[in-house]
């Protein structure tokens, strides 16, 4: 665990608005995602965060941004 379970939960919650609006933002640069694609992207993003958070910690901690 790199961050506490509570913090992990909050980070995932905080990702929600970013995923929801990602489609709109991408549409401005002419990248049109379908609903399914953005859902997959979102789940993928959460997966990456989970892997990062659960990876055994070595050395000094990184910024949680």
């Amino acid at each position: 665990m790199r961050i506490s379970k509570g913090a992990l939960l909050i980070v995932i919650a905080f990702i929600a608005p970013l995923i929801v609006e990602l489609r709109t933002v991408l549409a401005w640069v002419n990248v049109e995602l379908t609903l399914l694609e953005s859902a997959v992207l979102g789940i993928g993003l959460i997966g990456v965060i989970l892997v990062w958070a659960l990876w055994p910690q070595e050395g000094t901690s990184e910024s949680a941004g």
């Binding site: 961050i3 509570g6 913090a7 910024s63």
Partner: peptide, 18 residues
């Protein structure tokens, strides 16, 4: 510590805080 790293040190597990 850090510019943003301090955010991790907050008591996120406490529902009152979170």
């Amino acid at each position: 510590t850090g510019y943003l790293g301090w955010l991790k040190a907050l008591p996120w597990r406490d529902p009152v805080f979170a």
